[in-house]
Design a protein around this nucleic acid. Structure first.
Lengths: 252, 252
DNA sequence: TCTTGACGCTAACGCGACGTCATACCCTAC
DNA sequence: GTAGGGTATGACGTCGCGTTAGCGTCAAGA
C-alpha cells in the first residue's frame, strides 16, 4: 500500500500543496491518516479520488458539485454531465453575442456615427414613448437599460429606419382594426410589432407574458387608445385581442 | 442641468445602488457633488459615463480596464476592443474543448471501458517510460498530469492502439537510422513521433523547445540509446539530428 | 549531538465585483 | 413630532485558491 505526503501527491497530480490543504479544509479530499505531528498522509484511494476531482474541475464544475458527484454513490452522473454541458453551451452562446457586439462596435467606430441619449426617443410620440419606458423599466430595469444601450450604438440612419419601421407598423395595424384580430394579415403585422417591442424592451425570460400584458394596457389605458389624433377605443381592444392570440398561439 | 440621486441613477441605468457605491469607492464613477449630509449627487455627464461603463462591462471588461479606457482620452480604443475580442475567442475555444470532452465522457460511460492508472504505462519498456515521465513532470507537471488524465479516459482498445502505434513509430525510426535525418521519409516519421509525445506530455506553450530538448536527451543519455536490446549510439544521434531539424523547420 | 535545510502545519489576507446585512443619519409629509 | 423612505458607512460572504508569515518536524551530514 503506497503512501504519499502532501508534496508527493501534489506533484503527481500537478497541483499545489495549498490546493490539497484547501480540499482538506472543505472536506473534498481528506488524507487517509494524520501522523502524530499532524502531517497529512494520503493513500492510493485518495490519489484516485484526486484524479477524478481534477477531471471534473477542468470541466468547470464547482468544487461543491464535484463533492456531491463523488460522494453520492448513485448520483445521476450522466444527468450532471449533460446539465454541465448545457451550462457551457449557454456560456459559449453568450460569448458569441459579445464577439458580435465587439465587431459591430469596431465597425461603428470607423464610421463615427453613434446615437446620443437625447435622440433615442425624439421621433416617437412623446407621451406614449415615455409611458412605455416607465412601464417596462418598472418590471425589467436591467433588460431595458441594456436594450437602450444597444440602441444608442446604432448609426443615426439605422436608428431612424428602425423608428420609421415601427411607426409604419403601428399605422398599418390601425388600418387593419376592422379585420379579424386572429386573421393571418393581422397576425403577421403583430409578429413584426412584437419584434420591435423586443428591441426597445430587451429580451427578458418572460417577454412573452410581458407582451401579453402590454395587450391589456392597450385596451385599458386611455393613453394607448388613439392614433393620429383619432380616439379609438376599438383599436385598443383590437390590439389586445390580436396580441393575446399571437402570444397564445405562437409563443407558448 | 439635471441631477440624480443614487437611487434615481441606479434605476435609470438598471444597476443597484450598491454598484454605484462600489464604483465611487474604486474611483470609477464619482458623483459630481456631495450634499452637506454626504449624499451623492450625479449630473448628466456622470449618467453618460455610467452608460459607457456598463457597455464595456457587458463585454466582460474588468472595471480597472474600463477606467483606463475612459480616463486616458487618447487610448488605443480599437486595440483594446480587438484584444478583448481575442480573449473572448480563446475562452470560447476552451469551452468548445470542454464540451467535446463531456461528449466523449458520456460516450465512454455508456461503454464502461475506462483505463485505470496502473495500466497506463504497462505495455511500454518500463525504465524508459518512467524516465520520460520524470523528465517531463519536472518541467511541466500541470500539463503532464492533464495528459495522463486524458489517457485514462480512453477505452482500453483505444489506448492499446495508441501504444502500439507509438512503438511501431519508434521501431520504424530505428530502421531508418541509416538514412538522412533531414530526408522527407524520416521527417514524416518524426512528425508522427512528435504528436505521440504530445499526447503523453501534454501541450505546453513551449512544447516545441521541450521536444528539441528531448532530442538532446536521446543523444546523451544511455537509457535512450537502445532499441530491441541493441545498443545504438548512432540511433541516439540520428534521432537528435532528425528532431532538431524537424523543430527548426516546422515549429518556429 | 548539533545543525542545517527541506518539508510540514495553521492562520490570515488578497483577489473581483459586487450582494447582503447592520447600524445610524437625513428628509419630507402628515 | 413622528413615520416611512432614502442615504451613508462598514464589514462580511462569495469562489478557488496564491501568497506570505511564523512556527514545528524530520532526516542527513559534521
Amino acid at each position: 500500500m503506497k503512501e504519499y505526503t502532501v508534496k508527493k501527491l501534489a506533484k503527481m497530480a500537478g497541483v499545489s500543496v495549498r490546493t490539497l490543504h484547501h480540499y482538506d479544509q472543505i472536506g473534498l479530499l481528506k488524507p487517509s491518516i494524520r501522523t502524530d505531528a499532524r502531517y497529512r498522509v494520503y493513500g492510493e484511494r485518495e490519489l484516485l479520488r484526486l484524479q477524478q476531482i481534477l477531471f471534473y474541475r477542468e470541466l468547470d464544475f464547482e468544487l461543491k458539485a464535484i463533492g456531491n458527484l463523488l460522494d453520492s454513490h448513485n448520483f445521476d452522473l450522466v444527468g450532471a454531465l449533460e446539465s454541465q454541458k448545457q451550462m457551457l453551451l449557454s456560456r459559449r452562446k453568450r460569448l458569441d453575442t459579445l464577439v458580435a457586439t465587439l465587431d459591430k462596435t469596431m465597425l461603428h467606430l470607423k464610421n463615427k456615427t453613434m446615437m446620443n441619449p437625447e435622440e433615442l426617443y425624439e421621433g416617437l410620440p412623446k407621451e406614449q414613448a415615455a409611458a412605455w419606458r416607465m412601464e417596462a423599466k418598472e418590471n425589467w430595469p436591467e433588460q431595458v437599460a441594456h436594450a437602450e444601450r444597444e440602441l444608442m450604438r446604432l448609426s443615426k440612419a439605422d436608428f431612424k429606419a428602425l423608428q420609421d419601421g415601427f411607426k409604419a407598423n403601428v399605422e398599418q395595424l390601425a388600418m387593419m382594426s376592422h379585420l379579424d384580430p386572429a386573421g393571418s394579415d393581422v397576425q403577421a403585422a403583430i409578429a413584426q410589432h412584437y419584434h420591435y417591442i423586443l428591441r426597445f424592451w430587451g429580451k427578458a425570460d418572460d417577454a412573452a407574458e410581458a407582451y401579453r400584458g402590454l395587450g391589456d394596457l392597450y385596451a385599458n389605458d386611455p393613453r394607448y387608445t388613439q392614433v393620429d389624433g383619432v380616439p379609438a377605443e376599438t383599436f385598443g381592444n383590437f390590439l389586445q385581442r390580436a396580441i393575446h392570440h399571437y402570444v397564445d398561439m405562437q409563443l407558448r
